[in-house]
Write a protein that binds this DNA or RNA. Structure first.
Lengths: 195, 195
DNA sequence: ACAGCCATGTAACTTGTTACATGATTTT
DNA sequence: AAAATCATGTAACAAGTTACATGGCTGT
């Protein structure tokens, strides 16, 4: 719901055509990873299907402009006013992986943690080193890029802190594996699957 | 790629049937949000389609067991050996939202940040308060749950830190809005979309 | 002429997710 | 008898993502 809403918010500023939207999205978010143009057109189709944008005029150069609808504008306002919730739905891939790995007999969780920590440290250092090359170092674009970079760096640092805490927990709690079982209180049916 | 790989890793321990897989996944990850059973069967179908598991025997009680294949086992080993990469692809929804919001004229970014901070603080506090009710407070299950909880808490704390840093950056850099433009060096085609 | 970017679009596919249908068994 | 849980499955959809086809225009 990130690209979709972002494009809609940009369209709330005025009609745009596909390629333009990609450029706007990228300069406003620091262009971390280039957005595949195809996705723009897909998203526009879906936004149109949902009544949030409408296909507008085509100019002399053949640019197909899309404009936001009233419903779309309301949706943008709603998006901006409501906090991003990361409640139930969001399962963190790393956390799930470590949790699962920790419960599997024969799996060296500590090793998994070490590997992840190594990768995270490298990533953190390379992010810290990240000096904008070619891109402007001042102005709104630079601000956006800096904020996006900070976000990633803080996330990696949190990941590293968490990995340390996992090590501590594992040290304090050496028996953490689980064998297959029905995991219900009273296995009425089935057999206790092979152990 | 979290549920899919997790189920595969569990199946690497021995054959399981659908309902059992859900129970295993939940007790191993602390059952933050209950996993819809339908997803298990979907995932099993897809894993079978991809040659990673095979439909095995059906026991007297009618339980349909799935077993992992050699390819599947190799995939599990690969998954556990490789770090989770959060490189290019992963766009953080909050960061994108704030970055976009900051560049939109007429949008009060500071207000967005305030709202998000409030929600994040509430969430952090409620997570800290989270005492496992009913669930065991010892053993592997408790460990898994604690690790998953830590992960979420660290993530929220990082979010709060980032929100503070955003405020600082905005204070130091009051002009951060961008109007629509082609954003290309030389707009050969099209007009400078309405400003 | 040719490489490369601008530009639009289509088709396919991935994972996650929910809603629903169906029936057996078990508890109340 | 009714409600709840166990159990399997199907159908549909969301959002992201990629690959590809097609052309126009531009710079070398």
């Amino acid at each position: 719901m990130s690209v979709r809403q972002s494009l809609l918010a940009i369209l709330d500023q005025g009609p745009c055509y596909g390629y333009q939207l990609r450029a706007e999205f990228e300069r406003r978010t620091g262009a971390s990873s280039p957005l595949n143009v195809g996705q723009i057109y897909n998203t526009l189709e879906r936004l149109e299907r949902d009544g949030l944008v409408a296909k507008g005029e085509t100019d002399a150069q053949g640019h197909v402009f899309y404009e936001i609808t009233q419903t779309g504008s309301r949706e943008v306002a709603r998006w901006l006013a409501a906090p991003v919730v990361r409640d139930a739905g969001t399962r963190d891939e790393l956390a799930v992986k470590i949790a699962i790995g920790a419960t599997l007999p024969g799996v060296d969780v500590a090793q998994i943690v070490r590997i992840q920590r190594g990768a995270a440290r490298e990533r953190r250092d390379s992010l810290r080193r990240a000096q904008p090359t070619g891109a402007p170092s001042e102005g709104p674009e630079a601000l956006a890029r800096a904020m996006m970079l900070d976000s990633t760096i803080f996330a990696v640092e949190a990941e590293l802190k968490w990995l340390d805490s996992v090590d501590e927990r594992l040290a304090r709690h050496p028996e953490h594996t689980l064998t297959l079982g029905l995991a219900t209180d009273r296995p009425r049916r089935g057999r206790p699957a092979q152990v």
